[in-house]
Structure formats: structure tokens, C-alpha cells
Design a protein around this nucleic acid. Structure first.
Lengths: 214, 214
DNA sequence: TAGATTGTTAATCGATTAACAATC
DNA sequence: TAGATTGTTAATCGATTAACAATC
């Protein structure tokens, strides 16, 4: 009997990304073995949390030695889905959208920006790196033709839901929402809130409350 | 006796930002009253969670009517610290750093970008909007002179810790880390991980696991 | 072997939710 | 008033951690 692959809790997935980044570092330094205790202290976690999280991978540690860095890294890549490539479209060719389309870090991790869209006539036709800014009415056909599975919302909050609906209708399976607004999507479509401004506000709150507690 | 102001749990703070954004919307639409049930259904939360969260504010609802939108919005602004202005420096004048320095959304919420720095000789002296890219050795004096309290890391992961240390030594109280790496800061300094690439990876994982569960 | 580290259990901790008395 | 909605309690749910037997 094959063990039912359970859904992995969100906090665990989020730490998996941290493990991946850390192991990637270690591999670059030529480290071969690492213990749950080492990983934990590098990231501010207990070793128990680390070991419990890693149980979700098809990979085992070795009693007395820890985890083999390269093996764990490969297993994390597979788990997270960055052993494959992802085709991405950015909607909104403002400062943020353009920066995302040009950000070198994406392709390093397997995310390829294949298209960028905007409603603004003055932006349409302009170049952003190797891409040309396309009008919104080209979105459905482009998403299909380019087999794009992730859409990035770099549009004003008021437009976010409408654009998300269009992306989903065109076939994307995931949406990265950079607007500070909640969007609703059908079951089976994934959304992740980038919360750039939201994070900044949380940071402001943290600083403010430290000052007051003084 | 004054009630001890307890630390508010992180998940609550994060929802407070959502409430703020939603109430800001409602206020813009001229809505005057809102119930915990309404807020909850707009954001995908239970009304109990909303009511319990709002207890942390110096603001009460009205039995039978709900919460007055404008009052709740003001109270949320005060709680989050966006009733004041924040002076910000960006480190890293690459695509992402420049986009952040130009992003209009920041000033709308009270975050003013007062300086941008880079190590790259070719970037130093160039203009980014109204700002001039400054060399790193001008950072300490500029942070002090401009009374900057938040630093944004838009630098490669390898540089992040070093730049964070410099920012903190120069007096910033909070750091927004956009690099995919864990940084360590002294007690009383706040860090928030922007996790742009990290979020994208989490999204990829979500899509991948949905496909596999099919 | 002796020592170190895993994988897992059981206990703890904290966050969410259902339910309801209070009340305008 | 009757109905609706708050604020809060108690129950539930889920995540983290301490502890330890297994073991290389």
C-alpha cells in the first residue's frame, strides 16, 4: 500500500524554502554533511523542528552523521518544484513590473518571464529587456501559446481582482499578487500575496511597538 | 492601574494590515458601518477571528451595528504606525532597488525613500527619480543626517548580512530584507523578509502538489 | 566501542473557532 | 420591542518542542 501523501502545512513549506536557500549556500562552500542542529542554529529554529519538517521529504538522514548536503538539496528542489522550469507573465509594466521582468534572480531559480502586459497605450510596444509590452487583449492567446502557468499582478489594488480573473480564465494555475488587496480565486488555483507594502507596514508596527515598550 | 499592553501575535498583526487595506477600500466607497461578519467574509476569515483581533485596538464596536468604518480605520492606522511618516533608505540600485525607490505606493502609505546606495562605481552618481545613487561609504552619515529608520536590502544574498550590519550600526531600527537569505540582527532591531523569490517558490510548490494530487 | 545524531512520541504551547450572554 | 451584533469564554485544533530509544 502506498502511503497517502499528506498536504504539507504552510509554515513547513515556508521553512523548506529557507532550508533550500541555506543548503544552497553550504553546497557552494563545499560542505558535505550538515546536522539538524546546525541548520536550526543558522536559521533560528530548534533541531526538532528541522527534523520533523524534513520527514516530509523522500530523503533520510544518517544516524550519527546528519544529512548529506547535496542529497538534501536535490530532495528540497524536487519537493519545492524548482527542479523544473516555470513560465511566468507579468501584468503591469510600471516600475515594479518592469523591475520584476528584468530581475536576474528569477531565472536562476527556474522562473522564466515570457510576457509583460499593460493597459496603458503609451507603454504598449515599448521594450522591457527582450520583451515587448503587450496590450491586455493579447493576454489570453499569449498565456495559452506560451504555456504560462504563473501570473504576477503588478497592478493597482483596484485592478487586481479583474486581472486575476482574466489570467485564470486564460489558464494560469498560480497568481503572485503584489497589490495590497485580497483576491478571490477558484478552488485549485493558488494565490500568494507578495505583500511588499504590507510587509513594510508590519515592519513599521514592529518598530513603533518597540519604541513604546521602552 | 493601566492595563499592560501585551505583545500582539504576528498572525494578528498581519491580519491587521488586511483589515486596514479593506477598511480603506470601504471608506473610499463611503461605507459607514461594517460588521465582523462582513469583514470576515470579504477576507476569508471567521467573524470570531476578526472580533478577537480587533480587541487589541483602542476602539470598540457597537452592539447591533458593528464597527464605524472611519473610526476603525483611524484606530488601525495608529496601531500599525501609518499615522506617521517613515524615512527609508534602499541599498542596491539594481532593477529591484530602483523600482522600489520609484514605487509610488510607498509614499501613499507614509514611507519616504530618502536615499539609495550601491557599491558599483558605474551606478554611483546616476539619478533615480529625485535621488542620486550614493556610494556605500556615505551610508552612515546619510542615515544619521536624514534620520532614516528603515533600510531596504535589495542586494545579492551574499552581501545581505554585511549591509544589514552596516545599516544597524548606522542607526536604522528596521530592515526589510528582499534577499533570499536569513539575516541575524541584534535584539530590538526588526527584520522582515520580503521573500519575493521565496514566495514564488512557495507558489510553484503549491501548483506542483495540486498537479500531483490530481 | 563510545559518542553523536536521527526519527518519533508525548507534552506543551498557542492560535482559531463555536457558542452565547450581554445589550443597543 | 425584536433582531442583530458585540465581546468573551471554553473547546478545539494544529504546530512546536523536549525527550529518548534506536542505531551507525
Amino acid at each position: 500500500m502506498i502511503k497517502q501523501k499528506n498536504r504539507v502545512p504552510q509554515p513547513v513549506v515556508s521553512r523548506m524554502v529557507q532550508y533550500f536557500a541555506h543548503l544552497d549556500d553550504l553546497a557552494g562552500q563545499g560542505v558535505e554533511w550538515v546536522s539538524s542542529f546546525d541548520i536550526g542554529s543558522s536559521l533560528g529554529l530548534t533541531s526538532a523542528t528541522v527534523r520533523r519538517d524534513l520527514v516530509h521529504l523522500d530523503f533520510s538522514g544518517t544516524t550519527n552523521r546528519g544529512y548529506r548536503v547535496q542529497g538534501l538539496l536535490d530532495s528540497l528542489s524536487g519537493f519545492l518544484g524548482i527542479d523544473q522550469t516555470w513560465r511566468v507573465a507579468v501584468v503591469g509594466a510600471g516600475n515594479l513590473g518592469k523591475a520584476l521582468a528584468l530581475h536576474a534572480e528569477w531565472s536562476r531559480r527556474g522562473f522564466y518571464i515570457r510576457a509583460i502586459f499593460d493597459v496603458d497605450r503609451r507603454k504598449i510596444g515599448k521594450r522591457v529587456g527582450a520583451l515587448e509590452v503587450l496590450p491586455m487583449d493579447k493576454l489570453p492567446q499569449t498565456v495559452r501559446a506560451e504555456k504560462i502557468s504563473i501570473g504576477v499582478l503588478a497592478v493597482p489594488a483596484e485592478e487586481a481582482q479583474k486581472v486575476a480573473d482574466l489570467l485564470i480564465a486564460s489558464g494560469v494555475q498560480g497568481i503572485m499578487n503584489l497589490a495590497l488587496t485580497h483576491i478571490v480565486v477558484p478552488f485549485r488555483t493558488h494565490v500568494l500575496d507578495g505583500r511588499l507594502v504590507g510587509n513594510m507596514i508590519e515592519l513599521a508596527h514592529g518598530i513603533k511597538s518597540t519604541r513604546e515598550t521602552r
